Computed example of a mutant assay.
Amino acid sequence: MRIGILTLTISLPGCGSLKEKRQRMGGMHQRYGRNPSVAVCESAERDNLDTSQWTFVVTGHSLPEVESLCSEIEDRVQRSVDGRVIETAREIL
């Protein structure tokens, strides 16, 4: 079994409240938490209105499977979130 940790830092320019921030992030837990191979949480910048950081822990039987799922998550976040991914970090254990 392989484990991947994907951390995305997202810029939310013009965000004026925590409520707006939650709306712009658009249900990350619901979208990615349904997959039994993925755990997701807002890992930093919780009180910062214009930045959000999310960490995804991905498990799989092989390295290519974990890397593929990490890439899929990264692509979907970039397309679906009303913000801009400014930093990406990956670690494979």
Rank of each mutant, 00 (worst) to 15 (best):
P13K: 10
G27I: 04
S17K: 12
D47K: 03
G33I: 05
G33K: 07
V81E: 12
D82W: 03
V85E: 04
H29D: 11
W54P: 02
G27T: 14
M1L: 00
W54Q: 02
G83V: 00
L49K: 14
R46M: 12
T88H: 03
S37D: 03
S62P: 12
D75G: 09
T55V: 06
R79E: 13
H61N: 13
S11L: 11
R31I: 01
L69G: 00
E45N: 10
P13E: 10
S43T: 12
I73T: 01
R22G: 06
I3S: 08
Q53F: 05
V66M: 01
I3C: 02
A89P: 00
E45F: 11
A39F: 04
Q53G: 09
I86H: 02
H29V: 05
G16H: 14
G83W: 13
L93M: 05
A89R: 15
G4F: 02
T88E: 05
I5A: 09
I3R: 13
A89G: 05
E74S: 11
C70G: 07
L8R: 07
R22L: 11
T88N: 03
K19D: 04
M1A: 05
G16S: 05
R24C: 10
E65V: 03
K19Q: 06
I5V: 15
T59I: 14
Q30W: 10
I92Y: 15
E87D: 15
H61V: 08
M25A: 08
M28L: 15
K21M: 04
G33A: 10
L93Y: 09
I10E: 11
T88F: 00
S37G: 09
I3G: 05
E45L: 08
T7K: 04
D50H: 15
V58K: 13
V58N: 13
V40E: 12
P36L: 08
Q53K: 11
E74I: 07
N48R: 12
L63E: 04
E72W: 09
V66I: 01
R76P: 00
S80H: 12
L93K: 00
R46L: 04
I3Q: 01
L49T: 14
L63A: 11
V85A: 06
G33M: 01
L69W: 04
E87P: 13
I86Q: 01
E91C: 06
R24G: 07
M25C: 08
R31N: 11
S52E: 07
E74Q: 02
I3W: 07
M1V: 02
I5E: 09
L49D: 12
F56A: 08
T88W: 07
I92D: 02
E87Y: 00
D82F: 04
S37I: 00
W54T: 06
E67N: 06
M25V: 15
R22A: 15
M1D: 06
W54Y: 12
C41N: 13
S17R: 08
P13N: 08
T9K: 07
G83D: 04
G83F: 02
G26V: 13
W54E: 05
T55E: 11
G60Q: 03
G27Q: 07
R84F: 03
Q53H: 05
S68G: 15
T7G: 05
I3L: 09
V85C: 11
D47A: 14
L69M: 12
E20W: 01
S68T: 01
R24T: 08
Y32P: 00
E91L: 15
